[in-house]
Amino acid sequence: MTASPSSASPASRRRFLAWSGASVATAALAAAGCSAPDDGASSAQAAPTGGASGDLTRIGLDYPFTQLPLYSTLVKLSTAAAKRHDISLLTTSDAGNADTQATNLHAWVAQKVPAIVSFPMVFEATGSIAKAALDAGLIWVTYGGSLEHQSADIRFSFVEGGTLLGEAAAKWAGERLGGKGKVAFLTDGTIQLGRERTKGMIDAFTKNAPGVDVVAEEQAIDPDTGLSKSRAILAKHPDLNIILGVTDAAAYGGFKALQQTGRAKDDAKTFVGGQDGSAPSLLAIKQGTFYRASAALAPKDIAAAIVDVPRAVAAGKANPSAQVPITLVQRADAARIDALLAQNA
């Protein structure tokens, strides 16, 4: 947990600023050998919720990217998790629009939804809403990052996910290609999460496989774009060996493009990898194709955190925040693949 803020701090200026306060505090406390309140200033604000531990009956989950498959999975799993504690789960429908998200959050604060778990699309824009929620005596849990005013947070190290993928691909290139070859990255610069993943992926790969030529960095997060960009790249570099994607969806498009240019499904000199742990990619990994890796989040872990973190705040626990681990899934991890596929089903 201490590792994540420090590795994240260079990620983006925005993120850096948001986190710097917390990470300084964390570092200081860690140095002092003191394990308690790791969120420093922010956790102090968890107190005014005032409610006793068992009072929490509703949690609002505000996950803006409703177009992603993960959304449906998360809603399903966290609704089930909440139900076990007699909590009902509310959801927003932001459709990937930051303005809609702000409107919906304002509405929730006005309605006094007792606990809000929100994944801010724009962190700066959400700070004031979080503060308003706290001022209204509500629990505010930030998902995917931290805000100055919050009760707790649920964090992922997106940079780390990218790093895991980049390292694995670099290692593979060293073993199978003798450290030479061509790589193309399918990246995302439009949202924070994407920029972090992109950076982790590219930095780790280029550091560990300096002999491999980077022939393209193209924006692509969906399979359509992944496919057409990869096709164009392949037209220029038919001998491309590696495609790494900021999402599994984009990488899957690259996977298909390679096959369509005549690459055998299990070509030994080809490596495709993505991030998310989405079903088509997991299946492709399991089947032993050249889709070889995915930096996957376990939806079950996230769902558990969505329910448990607000409950921990409500119960007045000292250290309510959670970090959801990202793990790299490869062919050898058959059991984990099956588990992830089961959660998605």
Binding site: F65, T66, Q67, L68, P69, Y71, I221, D222, P223, D224, L227, A249, Y252, G253, K256, Q260, P280
Partner: peptide, 13 residues
């Protein structure tokens, strides 16, 4: 057919 996969949220967006 080309992609051998479809995602309801993003396909054709």
């Amino acid at each position: 057919s080309v992609l051998d996969s479809v995602v309801a949220g993003t396909s054709g967006a």
